[in-house]
Computed example of a mutant assay.
Amino acid sequence: MAYLLSEGSEQFDRSFLAASEQKLADVILAALPDSVTPLRLTRIGVIGAVIAAAALIGCRWSHAWLPVFVAGIAINWLGMALDGPLARRRALTHPRLDAIGQTNDLMSQVLLIVMFGASPFLSLQSALVILACYLLFSAYNYVRTIALQARPMTYIGIGPTEFRILMTAWPFAALAGGIDVTAPGGATRLDAAMLILAAIGVAGLAVKALADARRLAAEE
């Protein structure tokens, strides 16, 4: 979410689902009563993340928790994806609201990634690798947004919504692939694959950072 960034900014990367998400958001926002505020939506998003995190832990004992996990992610999206647009729609943008929203969104994603490491679908080692990459990308995203006066970038067309979809789909893909990191040796190949993907992702970010640096140098 972003309360302060202008809709008219030309320097931004659109995610795959940006257009469809905007249409859905417009429909939902038009139906929201005045009692629903941006800050309340932010809190709803945090609650959704906590529900999803608890469900991931519950999946260690029963996969019946998976629907609860999906519901939690949906609630998280509802809160975190709509708080900013609602603030702009009602002219309620404020630096304090932006800081609260950004911080809660970041902490929600961190919580979910770490809790994947406590689930049977991802080892703690893989979860920490993903977390390190996520924090690295997020940090550069904030730096780039300030330096280039640009909207937050996406990664190969993957924005926050696409990332949530990937998180939602992973437990089902793991079940289909017979992945169970609680079994002896169940995470060895998965950890190796995650390390390779992380290395590719970091290399891609380095290329992006170099291109941005050259653009900044050319503009000076």
Rank of each mutant, 00 (worst) to 15 (best):
T42M: 14
V46L: 15
S62Q: 02
M80N: 15
I57Q: 10
L78Q: 10
L56M: 07
A49C: 10
M80L: 15
N76F: 00
G79P: 03
R43K: 09
P38A: 05
R40I: 06
P33R: 02
A64F: 10
P38C: 10
R40C: 01
A53W: 04
R60E: 11
P38H: 09
G72M: 07
A81G: 09
H63G: 05
L82F: 07
G45N: 04
R43H: 08
S35V: 01
I73P: 08
W77K: 06
V46A: 12
A54C: 14
R60M: 09
I44A: 04
R89M: 14
I47V: 13
W65T: 07
V36E: 02
W65E: 06
L41S: 06
I57V: 15
A74C: 14
H63M: 15
L41N: 04
A55S: 09
F69H: 15
W77E: 15
A71T: 12
P67Y: 08
A87Y: 12
V46K: 06
W61Y: 04
A55H: 10
C59S: 15
V68N: 01
R60W: 02
P38V: 06
V46R: 02
V70M: 14
G72D: 03
V50Y: 02
L82C: 09
P67T: 09
L32H: 03
I75A: 07
A52Q: 04
W77P: 05
V46E: 07
S62I: 06
H63E: 13
S35R: 05
L78R: 07
A64M: 09
V50W: 06
I44T: 14
I51A: 07
V70S: 05
L78F: 15
V68Y: 00
G48H: 04
H63K: 03
A55W: 01
L56R: 01
S35Y: 07
I44Y: 00
G84L: 06
V68L: 14
S35H: 11
L78C: 11
R89D: 13
W61L: 03
G84E: 02
L78I: 09
D83M: 06
R60H: 05
V68G: 04
A87K: 12
V36N: 03
I47F: 14
D83E: 15
A71G: 10
W61I: 12
P85S: 11
G58L: 12
R88M: 14
I44W: 01
W61S: 14
R89V: 03
N76K: 05
V36W: 02
H63F: 15
A52C: 11
S62F: 11
D83A: 10
L66I: 09
P85H: 03
A52T: 04
P38L: 11
A74D: 01
W77T: 12
A49R: 02
G79M: 04
A87H: 11
P38N: 02
V68C: 08
I57G: 06
A54Q: 08
M80K: 00
A54T: 07
I47K: 00
V70Y: 06
G72S: 07
P67L: 11
L32M: 10
S35E: 08
I75F: 00
L32A: 01
G45R: 07
R43L: 15
H63W: 15
R60K: 13
M80G: 14
A74P: 09
L56T: 03
L32R: 04
V36H: 03
H63R: 12
L78A: 15
L39P: 02
